[in-house]
Design a protein around this nucleic acid. Structure first.
Lengths: 172, 172
DNA sequence: AGTTTAGCTGGACGGCGTACAGTTGGCCAC
DNA sequence: GTGGCCAACTGTACGCCGTCCAGCTAAACT
C-alpha cells in the first residue's frame, strides 16, 4: 500500500503493473494480497483518511466543519491521482469515511440541524463540494490549470456559503 | 458523434472500438474524422451543451441561474458516461461551454455581483457543485446508489445555499 | 482519361487488468 | 531430520484498450 501511494502520487493513474514493477515482482503476485485494483484503491483511500484530524467535542460547530472540510479538501489536493476513484466511490464507504460522516453529523446536530434527513443533505452537499472541487482542480493531466491560491480561495468561499445555508436551515 | 452518444449512453465508458463496431467499421477508421478518443469526447460534450436553454435577458437573475444550473445538472445526470470526462475537462472549454459561462456572468452581474473575480469564483463554485454532484451520483458502475428524488432535492438545496451566498456577496 | 484524395482495411505495438496452473521456500508436526 | 503444508511468487495467456503505419479502393475533380 505504501508503494501504491508512491506510484499514484508521482503522477498518472495507478496501475497494477506499476506497483508490481516498483516492488520488483510480477503483476499478478499482487492478487494474493489485494482484491484487484479497485480493492487496492479502496484500501489506500481509506488508509489515507486516517490522517484527517477529527474535531474535538468542544469545537464550535461551524469552525469544526470548516476545519474538517478544509482538511479533506487539502488531502484530496495532495493526492490528485486517487480523486477519480474517490469520486466513483461516492466519497468512499470505508470505515474511516463513516467515522468522518459521524463526526460531521454530530457537528451539524450541535449546530442546530437535528433532523436526520437534513443532516444527510448537508453532509452530501459538503462532501460533493470538497470532492468536486478537488476533481475539477486535478484536471486531465494531473496538473491543475488554475492558480492554487485562487483555487483554495474559491473553495473556502463556497464552503462558507454552504455552511451558512446549512446551519441557518437548522434554526427552528 | 450520434453513435458515440448512443454508445456511452447505454452503459460503460466510451471506447473507440465500440463506436467503430456499431458503425460496422474498423476502429482506426475513426481517426480520419476525430482527433483521438479525447477529441471525440470533447466534441460530443460540447455538442450536448447546445441543448441547454440560455436564459432570456428579462429573467430574474436568481431564477435564471437556478434554471441554468438545474438544466446543466439534469443534462449530466442524463449522460453519466461522460461525466468523468466533463470533470477532467474542468467543465469543458468548448465554444458552448464558454457561451454558458458568459450567460452566468451576465446573470451574476445583473444580480449585483459586478466584480469580475467574484463572478469567476461564483461560477466556479456553481459549476463544481453541478459537476461534482452528477459525478458522485453517477457512481462506479453507472447506476447511482442514491434515490434520484433525494439526489435532486439535495442538489437543489445546495444550489439554493450557494446562490444565496453568491448573490448576497454582491450587495453593496 | 488521368490524377488526386478521402475514407477505409489489415496488421501491429505497447499497455492494461486479471485468471490459471505450476513452482519455490520457509515453517511446523512428527 | 524428514515429510508435508501452504503462502507467495512466476510464467503464460486471454481479452480488452488507444493508436500508428502502410496500402488499397473508389469517387471526385481537371
Amino acid at each position: 500500500m505504501a508503494v501504491a501511494r508512491e506510484v499514484l502520487d508521482d503522477g498518472a493513474v495507478l496501475s497494477m503493473r506499476a506497483v508490481a514493477g516498483r516492488l520488483g515482482v510480477a503483476p499478478n503476485a499482487l492478487y494474493s494480497h489485494v482484491e484487484g485494483r479497485e480493492g487496492l484503491l479502496d484500501a489506500v483511500l481509506d488508509d489515507l483518511l486516517t490522517a484527517l484530524p477529527l474535531p474535538g467535542p468542544t469545537d464550535d460547530p461551524a469552525a469544526g466543519l470548516t476545519a474538517l472540510m478544509t482538511a479533506t479538501h487539502e488531502l484530496l489536493l495532495a493526492h490528485p491521482g486517487l480523486v477519480p476513484h474517490f469520486v466513483a466511490r461516492q466519497g468512499s464507504r470505508g470505515a474511516n469515511a463513516q467515522r468522518l460522516g459521524e463526526a460531521m453529523r454530530s457537528l451539524l446536530d450541535r449546530g442546530g440541524v437535528h433532523d436526520r434527513t437534513a443532516q444527510d443533505t448537508a453532509i452530501r452537499v459538503l462532501v460533493v463540494h470538497a470532492i468536486g472541487d478537488a476533481a475539477v482542480a486535478a484536471g486531465p493531466d494531473g496538473t491543475g490549470a488554475i492558480d492554487p491560491d485562487r483555487l483554495r480561495a474559491s473553495y473556502a468561499t463556497g464552503l462558507r456559503w454552504l455552511l451558512r445555508g446549512a446551519l441557518r436551515a437548522g434554526e427552528h
